[in-house]
Design a protein around this nucleic acid. Structure first.
Length: 507
RNA sequence: GCCUUUGUAGCUCAGAGGUAGAGCACUUCCUUGGUAAGGAAGAGGUCGCGGGUUCAAUUCCCGCCAAAGGCUCCA
């Protein structure tokens, strides 16, 4: 249809939205499609005809901003799904049901990992003992890996003077949308809850003169930060207002950037491999192509930073997608995206090259030439945040954590109360052998104890009855597998160690 | 923040203008049982919070808070 005719058609219909769309279309590329007596502007075709549509279900309704712009009006969007066969629709719905069972919010509650309290506040997770046990293991795992990679740990406070964020640019960029400054009895004195760790780390770098011999300086901190996320964005542990980043800032000389960046890629991949994350997308997050006002720093710095990332990725031989407009305001990023149970993508690991904050904080080191030089910063977090990482881990494993991470690795199940004493002795023995063990001392039958332990997804169940008490052995049952037979505590320990080692060597 | 929906016991949920109910969990007792739920009794709730309408509100209306699915945002 010619453009003029299309405009006439929608003017008569009084459809301002379609008129706006036509306005942006080339004359000659304007097509209409009809279905029955319904005719509308459509780029089409989606289907040759409607015959394959046999099963339809409306999934949800939601408001959606016109053309994705939150300053524009919101229209009602209907989400519906169709299949050629009713059975396929049912299968798809069953699949969704299965995915919901892996939902970390549901499993987090069932497995006693974390909780929320209205009194504490939305988006402020409370880690329960079992969740904390898991979290601490993740932390220790990464700390060990980082120590090997030449990182040093630092610790900084949860707040920082407002001036710190004026220097970094965070105040200007996010100040209004942040938790507001904290006042003190001292007139005019203000502190911010820290939304990032980098400014504090910059000050550590600046705390004394640095030599090129000190570089790269790798400052690591499991730093808890607070961001006032929009209320509608909060989502379980994946999007929260208080979270702990496995953060580090690497201060390097310009010619060290690429090499350091590649080493960080290796660290992220090590983490993903250890946790069996096989499906992830590597995303190069660059600036918005049109709107450059969102970013700080010179064109030259940005180009250098983007080049460092692109080249490092190419030299690593990694497949990556490029997304424009996804960069941080101070620099481009390499993001590792992983999907949750329902297929929603989340950013976990991130590595960022930053020429700008060192400039803003006037960071310097003395080079071999005895001249002052500006370092380059790499911001990086392999997990991203412990909260989000744990959430995705729960959904990937459906709560059946790798043995080395399981809050409880074994549960001792006495056949009857008569064997509780022997169970306690066995538990002590296993704890001495560094196996996290609990006992089910309840007055219940063995079938019941096994059922509950299976539901709690405890990796190993150790049954002690008359036979075992007499022989000094344990009957071992593996979660989801069944009876493995009897063995001594020593043999069981060997089994556990073997399993843990296997999970680290990629089976 | 915006749109739609939801909020009843620790959990999953039923209920109705006349001050609440089930299953599981919990406590006690009986049972001492060998690989996925033994039996009985008991206890447990300001029906998210604050207003309003009404003789009477947990139920109807308004506001707030929180949650779910989207949109927008994400240092």
């Amino acid at each position: 249809m010619p453009k003029a005719e299309a405009i006439k058609y929608f003017t008569e219909k009084g459809d301002e939205y379609k008129l706006e769309l036509i306005d942006g279309l080339e004359d000659g590329s304007i097509s209409f499609y009809s279905q029955g007596n319904f005719t509308d502007l459509c780029r089409g075709p989606h289907l040759p005809d409607t015959s394959p549509i046999k099963a339809i279900k409306v999934m949800s309704v939601a408001g959606a901003y016109w053309r994705g712009d939150e300053k524009r009006k919101q229209l009602t969007r209907l989400y519906a799904i169709t299949f050629p066969k009713q059975k396929e629709l049912e299968e798809y719905l069953a699949l969704l049901e299965e995915a919901k069972k892996r939902d970390h919010r549901k499993l987090g509650k069932e497995l006693d990992l974390f909780t929320f309290s209205e009194k504490v506040g939305a988006g402020l997770p409370l880690w329960l003992p079992k969740g904390t046990a898991l979290r601490e293991r993740l932390v220790n795992f990464l700390k060990t890996a980082q120590e090997k990679a030449g990182y040093v740990q630092v610790a900084t406070p949860h707040i920082g003077g407002k001036a710190l964020y004026e220097t970094s640019g965070h105040w200007e960029k996010y100040g209004k949308d942040s938790f507001q400054p904290i006042q003190t009895p001292q007139e005019g004195e203000m502190f911010m809850l820290k939304p990032m760790n980098c400014p504090h780390h910059c000050e550590i770098f600046a705390s004394r003169p640095r030599s090129y011999k000190d570089l790269p300086l790798r400052l690591a901190e499991f730093g808890t930060v607070y961001r006032y996320e929009q209320s509608g964005e909060l989502h379980g542990l994946t999007r929260v207002r208080g979270f702990t980043q496995d953060d580090a800032h690497l201060f390097c000389m310009p010619d060290q950037v690429k090499e350091e960046f590649k080493k960080v890629i290796d660290l992220v991949l090590l983490v993903f491999r250890a946790l069996d994350f096989k499906e992830y997308e590597v995303q190069i997050s660059l600036r918005d192509k049109e709107d450059r006002s969102k970013y700080i720093g010179s064109e030259e710095n940005w180009e250098k930073a983007e080049r460092a990332i692109t080249e490092a990725v190419a030299e690593k031989g990694m497949k990556a997608v490029v997304e424009y407009g996804e960069a941080a305001f101070y620099g481009p990023k390499l993001d590792f995206m992983v999907k949750d149970a329902l297929g929603r993508k989340w950013q976990l690991g991130t590595i960022q090259v930053d020429y700008n904050l060192p400039e803003r904080f006037e960071l310097e080191y003395v080079g071999a030439d005895n001249q002052k030089h500006r370092p380059v910063m790499i911001h990086r977090a392999p997990f991203g945040s412990l909260e989000r990482f744990t959430a995705v881990l729960i959904e990937h494993t459906a709560g059946r954590f790798p043995l080395w991470l399981a809050p409880e690795q074994a549960i001792i199940l006495p056949i009857s109360e008569k064997f509780n004493e022997q169970a306690k002795q066995a538990a002590e023995l296993l704890k001495d052998r560094d196996i996290r063990t609990i006992i089910d001392e309840r007055n219940e039958k063995i079938g019941r104890k096994i059922r509950d332990a299976e539901m709690a997804k405890t990796p190993f169940m150790l049954i002690i009855g008359e036979k075992e008490a007499g022989a000094g052995t344990l009957s071992v049952r593996e979660h989801g597998q069944g009876d493995l037979g009897t063995m001594t505590a020593q043999q069981f320990q060997a089994l556990v160690q073997e399993r843990i080692q296997a999970s680290f060597s990629g089976q």
